[in-house]
């Protein structure tokens, strides 16, 4: 396992930022999503060994999370916010960060050139970072995370502020890293399509808890015993009619989920005709990550309330 936590809790005064979190994240590319205040940031800080847990235990790439330095030796962190030293050149900063990570001077410089070429900052590497565009700064942030060749990359909102072309380039780079053997990625992002395009596994947090985790494909395909029906028209009335016909129906934000049983398809079309609705889709449940996310958050909020 890449990350394992057991009843991990971190409190700040009265606030339980991470609340009894138990996750088992496998190796590979993992998406970490959740609404603001879900505990993602605190979880990342715990993973980086920058916070000591209030209670509970956790292991990251074979180390206890309270070990700090050995953990950070194996992690490359790309922060969301601007953090580059403006008066340094691209190659100067990346090699400097390599040295602070423990590379010797020559190796750090050689690696800095390699990773900057990889991310596509070539001619500009000798210019001061203050003169870089947002896209180039994002690439340099990626390069500094790569320079010491860590086993685990933690990307925090890596496409923030990028134009569509820059975003596509960045996603291509992240995808390439995620596909590399023995290299793992934790991607924290609000842009769910980004997570969907890179990650194989996902962990969804809300209120410091894990509300879903698992293989993305399995989560998005939903339960096999459910039928997804998208209708144009009055969804609530549609659902009510089906319930009256003895079906188990859940009306979601985008469609209806109905427990499969014999004759359900005929009942769906009969109901549609009766209330004048149009069936746009009927079949296996295939959700986008955004739909899954909204559904889980709503369910969690209802449960909490």
């Amino acid at each position: 396992m890449l990350v394992e936590t057991n009843d991990l809790t971190k409190t700040f005064g009265e606030v339980r930022a991470v609340d009894g979190l138990s996750v088992a994240i496998p190796e590979g590319a993992i998406g970490l999503v959740g609404p603001n205040g879900a505990g993602k940031t605190t979880f990342l800080r715990l993973l980086l060994g920058l916070l000591r847990p209030t209670s509970g235990r956790g292991r990251v790439i074979g180390h206890d999370i309270s070990d700090g330095i050995p953990v950070r030796e194996k992690i490359g962190y790309m922060p969301e916010h601007d953090c580059l030293i403006p008066e340094m050149t691209g190659v100067g900063l990346v090699s400097y960060m390599g040295r602070v990570s423990g590379l010797d001077k020559n190796t750090a410089m050689s690696r800095a050139h390699d990773v900057l070429q990889f991310v596509g900052v070539e001619e500009e590497r000798y210019r001061k970072i203050a003169e870089y565009s947002t896209g180039m700064k994002q690439k340099v942030k990626l390069a500094q995370a790569m320079v010491h060749d860590p086993a685990l990359y933690v990307f925090d909102e890596p496409t923030t502020g990028l134009d569509p072309r820059g975003r596509s380039e960045m996603l291509d780079l992240l995808r390439t890293i995620a596909k590399t053997s023995e290299r793992n990625v934790i991607l924290s992002s609000h842009l769910l399509p980004d997570v969907e395009s890179i990650c194989k596994h996902i962990v969804i947090l809300d209120g410091g808890h894990q509300i879903a985790a698992g293989e993305l494909k399995a989560l998005l395909s939903g339960a096999g015993d459910r039928l997804r029906v998208d209708v144009r028209g009055d969804r609530a009335a549609f659902g009510q009619r089906l319930r009256e016909a003895g079906h188990e129906v859940e009306v979601g934000t985008t469609g209806l989920r109905i427990r499969r049983r014999a004759g359900i398809e005929a009942d769906v079309f009969r109901t549609a005709r009766a209330i004048g609705a149009e069936v746009r889709y009927m079949g296996s449940e295939i959700r986008s990550l955004e739909e899954l996310f909204l559904e889980l958050i709503e369910r969690n909020t209802r449960g909490g309330a």
């Binding site: 602070v100 190796t107 390699d114 070429q117 990889f118 060749d149 053997s181």
Partner: peptide, 29 residues
């Protein structure tokens, strides 16, 4: 093993100790 471009190759190198890391901050500063 190459990640994608021929210019970038994964190279796991042993990391130097903390005193060298601090030394790097001092000399660069």
């Amino acid at each position: 093993m190459s990640i994608s471009l021929p210019t970038y190759t994964r190279r796991e190198t042993p990391l130097l100790g903390r005193s060298k890391r601090v030394g790097a901050i001092i000399t660069t500063g």
